[in-house]
Design a protein around this nucleic acid. Structure first.
Lengths: 191, 191
DNA sequence: GTCTATAAAAAGATAGAC
DNA sequence: GTCTATCTTTTTATAGAC
């Protein structure tokens, strides 16, 4: 359990992410959010600046988590296959700990206003790094020489959609899920 | 080329789907739609009943297309592997012909009002049928005995997200894309 | 920190002229 | 089939009392 008590602002952001997952950013009103919190809409503004600021917090927190995770994996200088396994673990870990925020990142990023460009930069960099790892694997003959874009797309689609699926699957632990996904996503493309 | 001329209603639905893909149903206003069509918002109502009716048309048309496709594949009584290949082709075909509508189906189904239950029924039936095909494959030893829910999730995640990826990949034909996806999605799980 | 009251803008939709 | 004008409701956000 966490040692730090959740602030009201953190609570608002957590509940907002949950609602964003259910209906999407645009369909969630400040009144919806306030009602779920058990207060009036005007009271929210004592803790947060705007609805947009909530979205930025939810999405950028996770986007930066992925960026840090990717940097850490690239510093390990392991084999491509090992790096891909670590990426699967990264996605599973984040998806398990914050499925609601991940949903917003995947579905509502286009509603970012000031921070849209920054988000797109993080995402493009992440994809480029992911692609490089697969490329190295193909060069090293660790990975089958199938269309690299199709491999990348297939892995990212599965990993990015984990948040939709994890809430139903508490029967699988985080480690078991990583292991099963590794079997499916990696062994199929291994030489 | 099509022999039938597109009606104004069909044009509205087509443009609406395109906007829904870009911003999501809730963030698209009737004024946005009208402006893109080059008319005023009030004029839209001469052709369509409501914003909600547009969403229903966009989503249910595709949902029923998937239902029909699944029924056709199940009538073929081919091997499980062949049926999975046919399912991949079905998803690729629909995603190529109507990526915008598919985006709405995937992202905006929760905004269906009267038709929500009907949609959920079609989707649940589709998933159950998909699962049965994989199950038969495992029983027949055509498919590796990995966690069936993970196989199902991984395949559906990739196939359902095709619409995000296809617009960038006109270098790949529909058939080439089906072939590449079959290699990645099927050969990895084959015994 | 939460409330009531309210401002200001934007939304879906209709009426009726052309 | 499209327009202008308008209605009604809903939205984000602020002001100021408690």
């Amino acid at each position: 359990m966490s040692t730090k008590t959740e602030t009201r602002k953190e609570e608002i952001i957590r509940i907002a992410a949950k609602l964003f997952k259910q209906k999407g950013y645009s369909a969630v009103t400040m009144r919806d959010l306030a009602k779920t919190m058990g207060i009036k809409a005007a009271s929210l503004y004592n803790h947060i600046e705007s609805k947009q600021a909530i979205l930025q917090d939810v999405i950028l927190t996770i986007a930066e988590e992925f960026t840090l995770g990717m940097a850490s994996i690239q510093n390990q200088k392991a084999s491509s296959t090992e790096q891909l396994k670590a990426l699967i673990q990264l996605h599973v870990r984040i998806a398990c700990h914050n499925p609601d925020g991940l949903a917003a990142l995947n579905s509502d990023w286009m509603h970012l206003e000031d921070k849209l460009e920054y988000y797109l930069q993080l995402r493009n960099d992440y994809e480029a790094n992911f692609r490089h790892i697969i490329e190295r694997g193909i060069e090293n003959k660790e990975i089958k020489n199938v269309d690299i874009e199709v491999i990348l797309f297939s892995m990212l689609s599965t990993l990015r959609t984990l948040y939709l699926w994890i809430p139903k699957k508490d029967r699988l632990s985080e480690d078991e899920l990583s292991a099963s996904l590794t079997k499916i996503l990696i062994e199929g493309i291994n030489t």
